[in-house]
Computed example of a mutant assay.
Amino acid sequence: MSVEMELCGVRVRYGPLEALHGVDLPVPAGTATVLLGRNGSGRTTVLRALAGAVRPSAGRVLWRGADVTRLPAHLRARRGLCFVPDRRAVYTTLTVAENLRLAGDAGAALDAYPELRPLLSRRAGTLSGGERRMLAVSRALARPPRVVLVDEPALGMSPAVAARTYTLLGAL
């Protein structure tokens, strides 16, 4: 089994609070890996550490064996990492069409979520929670990423759209 990304003894602090306490987590290449746990167990912080959205206070983040611990999030994105955070995942002042254009191929996103088609001219900030989530997740479908990290993939979605989302993510 080859490892795509890996946390090695990672600790993350938010001020005086330590959210991750020496986490070791290999993420196998070519697989869907799911993190399960209670609220407050560190799932979001693990994803943020992998994406470069938070810097570990200790430990290392490896990507295909290379240490990327100090590599900023935007450079990880250029290397093919797509991070869809649980909140503030769309540009609320831009339209749906503009958000999709920034992501890449809007056609793939609209094929996956045809519900977005009639909303193309609307500002993303006026969308419902489920519509915003569809728009956010569609970024992972707009260009072929090497690694996709999605925090709370079905947040606010109807059960049918959530099921479709899990199928789409599983097919990446």
Rank of each mutant, 00 (worst) to 15 (best):
G129A: 08
P56A: 07
V12Q: 08
R43P: 02
Y91K: 07
R43C: 06
V27M: 00
A140H: 09
R55N: 05
L62I: 00
T167R: 15
S57A: 13
A53Q: 10
V23K: 00
V137Y: 12
D151A: 08
L116A: 02
L141V: 10
V96A: 04
V147M: 11
R13I: 07
G129R: 08
R133P: 00
R164L: 14
A140V: 07
L149D: 08
D151Q: 05
L155F: 14
L100Y: 04
G37A: 06
R38L: 13
R87W: 07
R76V: 05
P114Q: 07
R13D: 14
R139S: 07
S57P: 06
P118Q: 03
G107R: 15
G15N: 04
A163I: 12
G129N: 06
L116I: 03
T44C: 05
R87S: 13
G15C: 06
R117V: 11
A58W: 03
G125F: 06
A160M: 13
C82P: 03
G107H: 14
G9A: 04
Y14I: 06
P56T: 05
A49S: 12
L169D: 09
P118W: 07
V90Q: 03
R79K: 10
E131G: 01
T33N: 01
L17A: 14
T69K: 03
P72S: 05
A162H: 08
L149I: 09
L81G: 09
P145L: 05
T45Y: 01
S57R: 08
L127C: 00
A142F: 10
R164M: 13
T44V: 04
L110E: 05
C82Y: 00
R123W: 11
S158F: 02
S158T: 14
V46C: 12
V46G: 02
V147I: 13
R146Q: 14
E98N: 08
A77Q: 01
R143S: 15
E4Y: 01
A19P: 10
T126Q: 08
L7W: 09
G104Q: 08
A106H: 05
R48V: 07
R88Y: 13
Y14P: 07
A53K: 07
L168F: 14
G65W: 03
L100I: 04
V54C: 10
G30S: 01
D111S: 14
R70M: 09
G59W: 00
E98M: 08
S121P: 14
L71K: 11
E18T: 13
A103C: 06
R79N: 04
A66W: 03
P72N: 05
A51H: 00
P56F: 01
V23E: 00
P145F: 01
R117H: 12
P114R: 09
D111T: 15
P145C: 05
D24I: 08
P144Y: 11
A124K: 05
P72F: 01
V61A: 02
V148P: 05
L20F: 00
G42F: 03
T69Q: 09
L50C: 02
D86M: 11
V161A: 15
P72Q: 08
V68M: 06
V23H: 01
L94N: 12
R55L: 10
T167M: 13
E152V: 05
P16W: 02
V150H: 06
G42A: 09
A32Q: 14
N39A: 09
A73G: 13
G107A: 15
A124V: 07
N39E: 02
G170R: 12
R164W: 15
L62V: 03
A108E: 08
G80K: 03
A154G: 15
